[in-house]
Simulated scan of single mutants.
Amino acid sequence: MTPRERVKAAMRYRPVDKAPLQYYYTPVGYFEHGEKLNDLYATLPGDFEPFYRHEPCGPGPGDYDPDGSYHAFKKDEWGTLWEYRIYGIAGIPKQYPIPVLEEIDRYTLPDPLRRSVEAQQAVCRNQGEYYTLVNAHSLIERLRQLLPDDEVYCGIELDDPAINRLADKICAYNAVAIEQAIAAGADGIQFGDDYGAEKSMLLSPETWRRFFKPRLKELFAPAVKAGLDIHFHSCGKIEPILEDLREVGATSIWPQLPAYDMKQLADTCRSLGLAVAIHTDRANTMTFGTPADVRELVLREFETFKMMDGGSWFYVEADNGFPFENLRALVETIAQWR
């Protein structure tokens, strides 16, 4: 199987010659481990793009407090000022372009065509042999970057007309990226919204179905019609809406595995035909465990999700604080069992 054939089979619960592998090349991983990370990844290339050596990078000279600790501020094209305390890790909004719901209609979104060209570039780089997913952005995450959390969640719960208008504008922005992905010949799109906390959803399933489900269905419809896969990421426990995600067109999910009973999640997703990206526990095992803990967990993931029967793939991302010995154990064990 080519890498592309392998991933497409896994997405559809068809047997594979070996479990597919996806890397996300995090800046913080290269900042902490440098060329060792390039050398490690080179031993086991993935299926979503050809391996190439990434240049280790780090903070700029002005990104430090007087005491020498990393502390940076950056404003994005949406007008949000971000505060960063850990290099390479998502920051926290410091200033919002829309401080209150009443000012929503004064806000102007950036030009979506500036970003959608990335879809064409990514597909052109990897067309043919490798499986290509194109970023189709987010909805609740974007809302939470534009307004304070209380304005977002209260607005959604109260079905405020202004936040509904803003959500529709964001969906229209995201739709351009999907149109470009289809035109470029991508294999699928990826969409990310964090709906869950450690033990439950942040919004009730009923509220989610009212506010998000119809918008996602309309947003994904062109990709579904064109036969693209839809890969959906959400942190936290979102078990009550997994079937809903399948109904709006999602073909796979990238879940926060420790929030679930692994066997139950594997069985649920197999019954729904919802493929799963296997992201080995980063909050505990990868950060605080031993290489033996990592090896044991990877084997358990491989067996629980019946990876050779299709329906899942390994996802590798080097977060801050991962001991290199654990990263090596992760990649070497995946190589052994895939």
Results as ranks from 00 to 15, higher is better:
residue 185 G to H: 10
residue 270 R to Q: 11
residue 228 L to Y: 02
residue 279 H to L: 04
residue 38 N to V: 00
residue 164 N to Y: 00
residue 326 N to H: 07
residue 183 A to I: 04
residue 8 K to Y: 00
residue 180 Q to K: 15
residue 210 R to H: 13
residue 119 A to W: 03
residue 285 T to F: 01
residue 331 V to M: 03
residue 8 K to T: 12
residue 269 C to K: 01
residue 31 F to G: 00
residue 268 T to R: 14
residue 46 G to C: 13
residue 93 P to V: 06
residue 77 E to A: 12
residue 296 E to P: 01
residue 83 E to K: 06
residue 117 V to S: 11
residue 281 D to A: 04
residue 243 E to W: 00
residue 274 L to P: 04
residue 155 G to V: 08
residue 262 M to F: 13
residue 302 F to S: 09
residue 131 Y to T: 07
residue 14 R to G: 08
residue 288 F to V: 01
residue 17 D to V: 04
residue 128 G to D: 10
residue 203 L to S: 07
residue 247 E to A: 15
residue 301 E to D: 14
residue 64 Y to S: 06
residue 138 S to T: 14
residue 5 E to G: 11
residue 202 L to H: 03
residue 57 C to E: 14
residue 268 T to W: 00
residue 158 L to K: 13
residue 231 H to V: 02
residue 292 A to F: 03
residue 44 L to A: 11
residue 258 P to M: 10
residue 64 Y to I: 04
residue 134 V to R: 05
residue 218 E to D: 13
residue 280 T to Y: 00
residue 92 I to T: 15
residue 91 G to K: 03
residue 199 K to D: 12
residue 320 N to G: 11
residue 81 L to P: 06
residue 189 I to F: 10
residue 130 Y to K: 08
residue 255 P to Y: 11
residue 272 L to E: 01
residue 87 Y to C: 00
residue 197 A to F: 11
residue 173 Y to Q: 08
residue 212 F to L: 11
residue 163 I to T: 07
residue 220 F to A: 09
residue 224 V to L: 06
residue 114 R to K: 14
residue 333 T to N: 05
residue 104 I to P: 07
residue 89 I to K: 05
residue 294 V to D: 00
residue 209 R to F: 05
residue 68 G to P: 04
residue 100 V to G: 09
residue 241 I to D: 02
residue 101 L to T: 09
residue 280 T to F: 00
residue 176 V to R: 12
residue 328 R to D: 10
residue 20 P to Q: 03
residue 165 R to L: 12
residue 121 Q to N: 14
residue 267 D to A: 14
residue 144 R to W: 00
residue 142 R to M: 15
residue 334 I to F: 01
residue 74 K to C: 03
residue 14 R to N: 09
residue 93 P to R: 04
residue 180 Q to E: 15
residue 78 W to H: 09
residue 226 A to K: 01
residue 181 A to E: 09
residue 87 Y to P: 06
residue 211 F to Q: 10
residue 81 L to T: 15
residue 80 T to D: 07
residue 226 A to T: 04
residue 147 L to D: 05
residue 1 M to S: 14
residue 336 Q to E: 15
residue 316 V to H: 06
residue 128 G to K: 11
residue 64 Y to Q: 08
residue 193 D to R: 05
residue 115 R to E: 14
residue 15 P to S: 11
residue 288 F to M: 10
residue 329 A to D: 01
residue 254 W to G: 06
residue 135 N to E: 11
residue 43 T to C: 03
residue 112 P to E: 07
residue 302 F to N: 12
residue 113 L to Y: 14
residue 334 I to E: 05
residue 263 K to E: 14
residue 132 T to G: 08
residue 165 R to A: 14
residue 320 N to E: 10
residue 94 K to Y: 13
residue 206 E to A: 15
residue 9 A to P: 06
residue 19 A to H: 06
residue 301 E to Q: 15
residue 297 L to H: 03
residue 46 G to I: 03
residue 284 N to H: 07
residue 107 Y to E: 07
residue 223 A to H: 07
residue 141 E to K: 13
residue 283 A to R: 05
residue 150 D to H: 13
residue 76 D to K: 09
residue 56 P to M: 10
residue 316 V to M: 10
residue 191 F to E: 07
residue 338 R to E: 01
residue 54 H to I: 13
residue 290 T to L: 04
residue 24 Y to N: 05
residue 297 L to Q: 04
residue 310 G to E: 09
residue 302 F to C: 10
residue 136 A to D: 04
residue 50 P to A: 12
residue 286 M to T: 02
residue 337 W to D: 00
residue 281 D to C: 06
residue 133 L to H: 05
